[in-house]
Simulated assay, not measured.
Amino acid sequence: MDYISLAERVGIDKEKAVYVYKRMNGGYYLLLYYSKPPITYSLEDWPLLYLKRRKHYPKLAEPGYNEAFQLLVTLDVYSIVGTSYFLLHGDHNVPYTLIEREMKEVYEAIKQAANQESLYPYPSMGEPIEADFTGFVNDVVEKRKRDDEEDNVKLFNEIAYNSEVMDNLKRSYPWAKTISEEKSLKAVSLANLLDKFLEEVKEKIFYLAAERTRIFDKILVERGIRDAVYFVKKSDIKDSPTNEFEAEVLRIIKDIKSSSSYL
């Protein structure tokens, strides 16, 4: 099942669904589905994806397009909230009040973005769209389980290989151009750039730790997506952890540092 098929199933014109899908680049569900660990990092700008394409609002407000857009937002919200709810409770029956809370926040943000630029009309939230989003939630749950089991060394070697620190290293040292992905952390350490690399990727470390300890999901279910993202963004590295999340952050950093040593 994909968004277009779902749209047709609930009676939305395929052409209108395709238009919305393309303008929104597939929505947050698609971002999560194709993201590398930690996938919740894809939510760091929530709900900016809907706001930065505001020039399309008048078209998206038209009959048929408005419903197609609402379905995409609903799918995204169910995929995100439904995943957190399932990981915490093992249940797909997420209370609609949690979905409605996020939907209202998204549409309020859209309204504010439209008013700032005097755009009218803009998409509006209609009656709830009834559909089965379980398959989409299961897709994201599987990605989250993959994140839980991901080897820290392998993951951060890959991140290091594609990092800004590595790009600068290759420009500065000819030998760095021959470094394999598996040796990326060692190369960064050899160039005395490990601290700089950790600073570059600390948010990804926080997201990964927040996923694994489920603190991200607890905050999301209790207070919403924005608050869960804000928790990660305001986090810091604590030398003396006072909770499971802070301890997991240190475990990840310890693995990175241990694997980067040539000793």
Rank of each mutant, 00 (worst) to 15 (best):
M1C: 07
Y3R: 11
S5H: 12
L6F: 12
A7C: 10
A7M: 05
R9G: 04
G11K: 09
G11R: 03
D13P: 02
A17G: 10
V20M: 09
V20S: 05
Y21Q: 07
K22M: 14
N25R: 15
G26K: 01
L31V: 10
S35D: 07
K36H: 13
P37F: 00
Y41V: 00
L48K: 14
L49E: 00
Y50V: 04
Y50N: 09
L51G: 04
L60R: 04
E62D: 02
E67G: 06
A68H: 13
F69G: 03
L71C: 08
V73K: 09
I80M: 13
V81T: 12
S84L: 08
Y85I: 10
H89Q: 11
G90D: 00
Y96E: 14
Y96Q: 11
R101Y: 12
E105A: 13
E105R: 13
E108T: 07
E108P: 00
K111G: 02
Q112Y: 08
N115W: 08
E117G: 01
P121Q: 11
M125S: 08
D132R: 10
G135L: 12
D139I: 07
R144P: 00
R146D: 03
K154R: 14
K154I: 11
L155M: 10
N157H: 05
Y161D: 10
Y161M: 06
N162L: 06
S163I: 06
K170C: 05
R171E: 15
Y173V: 12
A176T: 06
K177D: 02
E182C: 01
L185R: 04
L185A: 07
S189Q: 14
A191T: 10
D195A: 12
L198W: 06
E200V: 01
E200Q: 06
K202M: 02
R212Y: 03
R214Y: 12
R214W: 02
F216C: 03
L220E: 14
V221P: 09
E222W: 03
E222V: 01
E222F: 02
R226G: 06
D227L: 07
Y230E: 13
V232I: 14
K233H: 15
K233V: 02
D236V: 07
K238M: 03
D239H: 01
S240Q: 10
P241R: 02
E244H: 00
E246W: 00
E246A: 04
E248V: 01
L250T: 00
K254S: 15
D255Y: 09
D255W: 01
S258R: 12
S260I: 08
S260A: 15
S260P: 11
